[in-house]
Simulated scan of single mutants.
Amino acid sequence: MESLGKKLDRAGQVVHQGLAVYGNKGSTDQHAYVQQLRDGVDNFFASFIEVLEDPAEIAPIDGEVPADFLSGFLQGTRSALMEGGRQSLSITLRRLDATSLGALIALFERAVGLYAELVNVNAYDQPGVEAGKKAAAGILELQAKLELLLADGVARSLEELRQSLALDSPEPLFWILRHLCANARGYQANGQWGQPSSLLFSRG
């Protein structure tokens, strides 16, 4: 999803392009997942991946072969979606091994690249991912400054901490301090968590 989720296309035009990809195996999430796909908004296609050879490490249980149930779920789900007019495609592997798994990954990698070409976005530029990493680094830097400020043992409110650290909002401080206070780091919060403005934070 990170390769296709783009705000801008290659011409710099705002397009908000992307695909949401979800997956499960066997009967996992059968109720909520398939119910949504069959009777919900028809804005998707489903990809079924089938492995013909049963895994040797899964032995029969009371004479029943677990893989038979998985095969039944696959065929039943595919049939239910077809009856609901939903689009799908099926990919069949003879067996699951390093070769077939590698080929499957390569197939979807190429599908992503092709789709990106069709909608004119750069699949290999990921500014959203980079923005998340930079934001996380900024939070860790802010935490270090906050811990240094509270090292003197003086109790301070969120607003006092915000002013001392020259922030526009106390919200990141609240999240950082909530984490620190919950993990025996020596930080204390006096007041009501449900009323952040009442809290006084200190390091004992």
Rank of each mutant, 00 (worst) to 15 (best):
D152Y: 11
A144K: 15
L167P: 00
L173F: 08
L142E: 02
V15Q: 03
L180N: 04
G23L: 08
I139Y: 08
A166W: 12
A59D: 08
Y124W: 02
D68H: 03
E2R: 00
L52W: 06
L96S: 14
A103H: 13
E83S: 14
A11W: 08
G18K: 06
Q192G: 02
E83L: 15
F174G: 03
K7F: 04
D54T: 08
W193H: 05
Y115E: 08
V154T: 09
G72A: 09
V41M: 09
H16M: 07
L148M: 13
A46H: 10
S3T: 00
G113L: 14
E53I: 13
L89G: 08
G128K: 02
G85T: 04
G186C: 08
I49R: 07
T92F: 05
L19N: 01
T92Q: 09
G113I: 06
G26Y: 12
L101T: 13
E2V: 00
Y187P: 01
S157M: 09
V119W: 01
S47E: 03
P66M: 12
A98V: 13
A189C: 10
W193F: 03
G204K: 11
E53S: 09
L107A: 11
C181V: 15
R86G: 04
D97V: 10
V65G: 01
L146W: 02
L74W: 07
Q30Y: 11
S198R: 07
G191Q: 04
A32W: 12
L81S: 01
I61R: 10
R95Q: 15
G128C: 01
R10E: 04
G113A: 14
A151F: 04
C181E: 11
E117F: 08
E117R: 13
L167R: 13
D54S: 10
G194L: 10
G76N: 11
Q126D: 00
G113P: 00
